[in-house]
Amino acid sequence: MKPRLIFIGLLVVSILLVSCSGNSNAEGATNSEIQADWPMLSLDEMTQKADLIAFVSVKSTAEEDRSNGIVAQISTLKVLETLSGQTSGKVKLNQATNYLEKGGNYLLFLSKNGTEEYYFVMSPAGVIKEHNGVYVSNVFGGNGKFNQDQIKNLLLD
């Protein structure tokens, strides 16, 4: 009988320790950061699978609370030049992580999910920010620094 009581006591203490060791903030809520599993796609895979490849400018951003507790950013993008796909001069991008910056210029490889009005980023490699007229990414090979004309030559040849 005594070994059984010791075992039960140890079990209760273990359960209490495990339940109290969670990562909580001062209010007691779990402190979690949104994470996503991204497919790591090559340039060829992104080019083949993308519904839209375009140089864009981010005109506005807005947060949207989802029913699943995730806060998404909806960015309104002005399409500066389309390299593949068809679109009007403006598209909406839905992102749960790695938000685009308002006012930034990007080369984006995007996909659509069924009939939704929004586009989605295909892969982290499919978001290439422009810095002083140069797009820096190792997805194109070489030194990783390309201007808009060089990227068009790489993608359209």
Rank of each mutant, 00 (worst) to 15 (best):
E63D: 12
E63R: 07
E64H: 11
D65P: 11
D65R: 05
D65Q: 13
R66Y: 15
S67G: 01
N68E: 08
N68T: 06
N68Y: 03
N68K: 02
G69C: 10
G69D: 05
G69M: 08
G69S: 10
I70L: 12
I70T: 08
V71M: 09
A72K: 10
A72Q: 09
A72D: 09
Q73I: 04
Q73M: 14
I74C: 13
I74F: 12
I74T: 02
S75Q: 04
S75H: 03
S75T: 01
T76G: 03
L77K: 03
L77P: 04
K78V: 05
K78R: 11
V79E: 00
E81T: 09
T82H: 01
T82E: 08
L83I: 09
L83T: 07
S84V: 06
G85T: 06
G85K: 00
Q86T: 13
T87A: 14
G89S: 12
K90E: 12
K90Y: 12
V91S: 03
V91T: 01
V91K: 01
K92W: 10
L93S: 09
L93Q: 08
L93E: 06
N94V: 05
Q95H: 09
Q95C: 12
Q95T: 10
A96H: 11
T97H: 07
T97V: 15
Y99W: 15
L100Y: 14
K102Y: 10
K102E: 13
G103S: 09
G103K: 02
G103M: 06
G104Y: 13
G104K: 01
G104W: 14
G104P: 10
N105I: 00
Y106C: 04
L107V: 05
L107N: 04
L108N: 07
L108H: 12
F109H: 04
F109G: 13
S111T: 14
S111V: 04
S111Q: 11
S111D: 08
K112D: 06
K112I: 06
K112S: 13
K112P: 03
N113I: 07
N113F: 15
N113K: 14
G114L: 11
G114V: 07
T115K: 15
T115F: 15
E117R: 05
E117H: 00
Y118C: 07
Y118M: 04
Y118I: 00
Y119D: 05
Y119S: 11
Y119G: 09
F120D: 13
V121H: 01
V121F: 05
M122N: 04
M122I: 11
P124I: 10
P124Q: 09
P124L: 13
G126K: 02
V127D: 03
V127K: 14
V127M: 14
V127R: 11
I128S: 03
K129A: 15
K129V: 06
E130N: 10
E130C: 04
H131R: 06
H131K: 12
H131N: 13
H131C: 00
N132A: 14
N132Y: 08
G133W: 07
G133R: 01
G133Q: 03
V134D: 06
Y135N: 02
V136D: 13
S137C: 11
F140A: 02
G141K: 00
G142D: 08
G142A: 07
N143A: 10
N143I: 11
N143W: 10
K145T: 12
F146S: 02
F146E: 01
F146Y: 14
N147R: 01
N147W: 03
N147A: 05
N147F: 09
Q148E: 09
Q148T: 00
D149M: 02
Q150N: 00
Q150F: 07
Q150L: 01
I151P: 03
I151C: 02
